[in-house]
Design a protein around this nucleic acid. Structure first.
Length: 303
DNA sequence: CCCACGACCTGTGGGC
DNA sequence: TGCCCACAGGTCGTGG
């Protein structure tokens, strides 16, 4: 399940085939994911071109040359797969092309063909410029929306979003101000998308470990030096995870099918009972639950 | 406003 | 081998 680094990895994987491409052959294999697909979803995307792809928090945004922004949230298990169509490109541009490579795949819910604009003007038959983009999502916690910019900023999904972890607005002062007076623990506060947007269970655990802060500390008890370490830890863990192509646990994969490799650098996540990796620390990693989510931490070096 | 919890889904892995 | 339970990257809505 994708947190910010995985969504960023997906965005980068989709960009070469989607940006500057015209969409066609939108196919829905079921009426809904977490929510119903938007009204007239296929009609509104077919024939439209993707101007640019962006990521906000864990949302993927495709700005179309129409009024629409095609928004995707991957939920826990959403995954895009990009396949060059090669010799099938010509058929793909024919409205009758039954385009999914395996339409019977159990969790393949949506597909679309993307054809590079400049290529289309020269020859529509060049397969390396036409891609099939398939969306899989076993648990269907993901969803897709079509919104105008105004609708997007007013929507319940976007209007309350907090700062991006890598934005300059996230710093020690911000944390001190936002956590002041808060009785909730650091784990819960860092998970709240309305404060910092994009962190999830893995990277919150890893950031708290790097900052040597207990997940149980009340927000109001965070001291300035701790806030400094926490801000730096969030930025470093997210930056490194993006550079590593995200984390592949169970089923996350980039659009090419390649796995991220940040999971090999986890210091605490899913390491219950294993030795703390801090030099000279004899502690063992523990697991406990905060607000329904597993937290992994070292009680010896996280205070 | 703040917070905890259930719900939404399917798959997998561990224990017996 | 099979069964059952716990748990999995998220977040929305509800109720206290």
């Amino acid at each position: 399940m994708p947190e910010l680094p995985e969504v960023e990895t997906v965005k980068r994987g989709l960009a070469p085939s989607l940006e500057g491409a015209v969409l066609s052959n939108v196919r829905l294999n079921r009426p809904n994911l977490r929510y119903p697909f938007p009204d007239h979803f296929a009609e509104r995307l077919n024939g439209a071109a993707v101007v640019r792809l962006e990521r906000r928090a864990k949302y993927l945004l495709a700005y179309m040359d129409t009024e629409d922004i095609w928004v995707t949230h991957l939920g826990m298990t959403g995954r895009f797969q990009v396949t060059p169509l090669g010799d099938n490109a010509a058929k793909a541009l024919d409205g009758n092309y039954y385009h999914s490579i395996d339409t019977g795949a159990k969790h393949l819910h949506m597909s679309v063909v993307a054809t590079a604009l400049k290529e289309r003007s020269v020859s529509a038959n060049k397969g390396d410029q036409t891609h099939l983009i398939d969306y899989y999502d076993p648990r269907r916690f993901g969803f897709m929306l079509l919104l105008t910019p105004e609708e997007l900023s007013a929507s319940k999904w976007f209007q309350g979003l907090g700062v991006e972890p890598l934005d300059g607005a996230l710093n020690a002062d911000f944390l001190m101000a936002q956590f002041a007076g808060r009785a909730a623990n650091l784990k819960t506060l860092l998970m709240a998308q309305g404060l910092i947007a994009g962190l999830g269970n893995i990277y919150v655990c890893e950031a708290l470990y790097r900052a040597r802060l207990s997940p149980d500390m009340a927000g109001r008890d965070l001291a300035p030096d701790g806030a400094e370490r926490l801000s730096a830890a969030i930025k470093s863990v997210i930056t490194e995870a993006i550079a590593a192509g995200g984390s592949s646990i169970s089923d996350f994969a980039a659009t090419s099918g390649e796995l991220g490799y940040f999971q090999h650098r986890f210091k605490v996540y899913d390491r219950k009972g294993q030795p703390c990796l801090t030099q000279g620390c004899a502690g063992l990693i523990e697991r406990k639950v905060h607000t329904g989510r597993s937290t992994f931490y070292c009680a010896t070096c996280q205070k």
